[in-house]
Nucleic acid binder design. Structure first.
Length: 129
DNA sequence: CCCATGACGCGGC
DNA sequence: GGCCGCGCCATGG
């Protein structure tokens, strides 16, 4: 396969061409779905869990397609390593992410999760293989 | 093909 | 201990 692409467009319908393994995106979504209500995790934590510690960025990129996949992915439970809602702008409305979190009893102040350390859910720890 | 741009993170200062 | 620079990796111009 000369040129394998993975555009959000394609992710919507089918997995990236040329991918024999379970796509990276699929795995990211799978882990994200297992984050319990009232808890949050980080892009880096997911990346590390998937053995791609250096691809935290790709995890964030993958979340772009999280809105049109099924079953739904609780993308609002994924924040950056500082507990900040760095992806709020990618939701339907800039305040959606925060609203969803507060609905789960997670306090948000200045675009950051309050008591992030306590709410943090690390797949590498909680989700023993 | 080279450059810029990210829902990121670590290491240096 | 916060701020800045650089590495990552896929995309788009």
């Amino acid at each position: 396969m000369p040129h394998k692409k993975t555009t959000p467009e394609k992710i919507k319908s089918v997995l990236p061409s040329g991918r024999t393994d379970t796509s990276f995106f699929e795995q990211v979504y799978d882990v994200a779905r297992q984050v319990p209500r009232g808890r949050v995790t980080s892009y880096g934590a997911i990346a590390a869990y998937l053995g791609a510690a250096k691809s935290a960025r790709m995890v964030g990129w993958a979340m772009n397609g999280a809105f049109h996949v099924k079953p739904p992915v609780p993308a609002h439970r994924v924040v950056n390593r500082n507990g900040m809602l760095s992806g709020k702008m990618h939701f339907s409305t800039p305040t959606k992410m925060e609203e969803l979190l507060k609905k789960e009893k997670i306090s948000v102040k200045n675009d950051a999760v309050v008591d992030f350390e306590k709410k943090f859910w690390d797949p590498s720890v909680e989700l023993e293989l």
